[in-house]
Design a protein around this nucleic acid. Structure first.
Length: 156
DNA sequence: GCCAACGTTGGC
DNA sequence: GCCAACGTTGGC
């Protein structure tokens, strides 16, 4: 089983929005970056866990966790001319954009803000913290996942 | 609002 | 295939 991190701007889609979805599930659609798409399409497995990260807000933070509950999901927003994620190059015969469906596991009572993450020597190698890293779907190393979950559970 | 970093586009 | 121009991300 692998671990991931999903970024979203809370103005666009927050973890509270996910909690309001039917069955607290939703396709992670709208990703228009090939590297992120490839991670979702080729690497993710049902049962994988991910952090939900709020970006472009004050403060940016890891705010909860999700589980991958369906894979090989076609990104329907690419077919919708009304959608901001519409891509005329993605066709029903040959879809360009794929994602996974995620379900809410937990909204953390105490989010882990970015400034705190940056202070943790154990997290120095997290891709999220690398300069210039913009990927909206990222892998998370097991040791980083465990360190962070321990912080969540113990309230450190 | 600024801007550094990165990704994409398209002319050549 | 190169690379300049442009667009986006996202922290600050």
């Amino acid at each position: 089983m692998a671990y991931w991190l999903f970024k979203s701007e809370p103005d666009q889609f927050s973890i509270q929005d996910l909690a309001q979805c039917p069955q607290q599930r939703e396709p992670w659609d709208g990703v228009r970056n090939y590297q992120a798409r490839n991670l979702m399409r080729d690497q993710m497995q049902v049962g994988d866990l991910g952090f939900f990260y709020h970006s472009n807000c004050k403060p940016p933070a890891i705010v909860g966790s999700v589980r991958v509950c369906r894979t090989q999901v076609r990104d329907e927003s690419a077919f919708d001319p009304q959608s901001p994620y519409f891509d005329p190059k993605s066709t029903l015969e040959n879809p360009r954009w794929w994602c996974v469906e995620v379900e809410l596991v937990e909204i953390f009572a105490r989010p882990l803000p970015l400034p705190w993450l940056k202070q943790q020597a154990q997290l120095a190698k997290m891709p999220l913290l690398a300069k210039g890293q913009r990927l909206s779907v990222q892998p998370v190393a097991p040791e980083h996942w465990q360190y962070l979950m321990q912080a969540v559970q113990t309230g450190v």
